[in-house]
Design a protein around this nucleic acid. Structure first.
Length: 340
DNA sequence: TAAGCGTGGTG
DNA sequence: TCACCAAGCTT
């Protein structure tokens, strides 16, 4: 009933997206579905599009992706965020090649055993690429179902979402739910006036659609300070690769001290005449905000941990956004030093 | 279980 | 300027 109405709406209003087949179309390539779904985890469609196109052109198959070097993959992911996804993407591709003969397993249960694939992504790939009637509950679906049935707990939402998942066209249905949530049943000011499920919606009947889903209050973000070091030698800049786990793990970066209360030049990668740049870099991560000072030094090609990288090719290094900001500040203001 | 994990768009 | 939040996963 709900599914029929939703699919009828989807047949007329489906968004056109690079990774998507038209409604009722042939099942898309599981590799392409997986790639798009991982990129879309907590990430907007607009941000994903250019990365998806670049990745698919550079790595058209899971075999090609599995064979690439870690550093190239991580650099290609730079700027998209949540970098553990990139590490897991590579681990998953290699597992598909070595343990599954290069073919993605066709069930949600088997997909979920692969790195970086949780409940949502397993269900989405199974439904979209393999036609399995799997429950697909992302943030959109949680919101739509919570409003339809006026539910306050995540467990109840998951149960209802599974109960109304149809046997027919499960992939279109999953994408229809997400399109509805993204374009009509939005977090704020939902467009109930044009919603195909308005007559079925308990939250609409109550006049309080925005009251669902119930959100826990979020903790206050702490503020941290730090220094990054721009060490320049003969047209090169010193880059390091961050430890594989943790914040920005596995990514190339500028050397940096710890981020906390009192940054110190004592954390520089080597002794030099470090000069603090005017201005700073402000950046907001998921769980803290950061003010970075930039210290610069022009040196000989000293022995230092890391790699000396040509400044002219810095764009190819794949720096995460926070370090890209710092690099831009260094390049803009190298001429306007002040004493520290 | 709750915390850790990025970034950019939007109102 | 700032709070909110987007096709979540891992530990």
């Amino acid at each position: 009933m709900i599914a029929d109405k939703l699919l009828h709406w989807y047949d007329r209003h489906a968004r056109v997206l690079p990774w998507r087949s038209p409604p009722g179309g042939a099942a898309p390539d599981p590799y392409a579905v997986w790639l798009s779904e991982v990129m879309l985890q907590q990430t907007t469609v607009a941000a994903v599009k250019p990365y998806y196109e670049r990745f698919l052109a550079r790595w058209p198959t899971v075999e090609a992706l599995a064979a690439t070097e870690d550093a190239e993959l991580m650099a290609a992911w730079a700027g998209l965020g949540y970098y553990s996804r990139a590490r897991n993407l590579l681990a998953c591709a290699r597992a598909v090649v070595t343990e599954h003969g290069g073919r993605f397993p066709a069930s949600a249960a088997a997909l979920k055993r692969l790195p970086g694939i949780g409940d949502y992504t397993a269900g989405a790939i199974a439904a979209i690429a393999f036609g399995e009637s799997a429950a697909v509950v992302d943030g959109n679906v949680e919101r739509v179902v919570a409003r339809l049935f006026a539910l306050e707990s995540k467990a109840a939402v998951r149960e209802q979402a599974a109960a109304i998942t149809p046997a027919a066209r499960p992939g279109d249905y999953a994408q229809a739910m997400m399109d509805l949530g993204a374009t009509i049943c939005t977090p704020k000011r939902p467009a109930c006036g044009i919603c195909p499920l308005r007559e079925d919606c308990r939250a609409f009947a109550r006049g309080t659609p925005e009251a669902f889903p119930v959100r826990a209050p979020r903790a206050e973000k702490p503020h941290r300070r730090g220094i990054v070091f721009w060490a320049e030698a003969e047209g090169d800049v010193l880059l390091v690769t961050r430890p594989a786990k943790g914040l920005l793990g596995g990514m190339r970066a500028l050397p940096t001290g710890s981020w906390g209360d009192a940054p110190s030049l004592g954390e520089a990668p080597f002794a030099a005449d470090w000069q603090m740049l005017k201005g700073n870099v402000r950046h907001v991560f998921t769980h803290f905000s950061l003010d970075l000072s930039v210290a610069v030094a022009s040196v000989g090609r000293v022995n230092a941990e890391g790699e000396w990288w040509p400044i002219a090719r810095l764009g190819e290094a794949g720096l995460p956004t926070v370090f890209d900001k710092a690099a831009r500040l260094a390049l803009e203001s190298r001429m306007s030093l002040i004493a520290c």
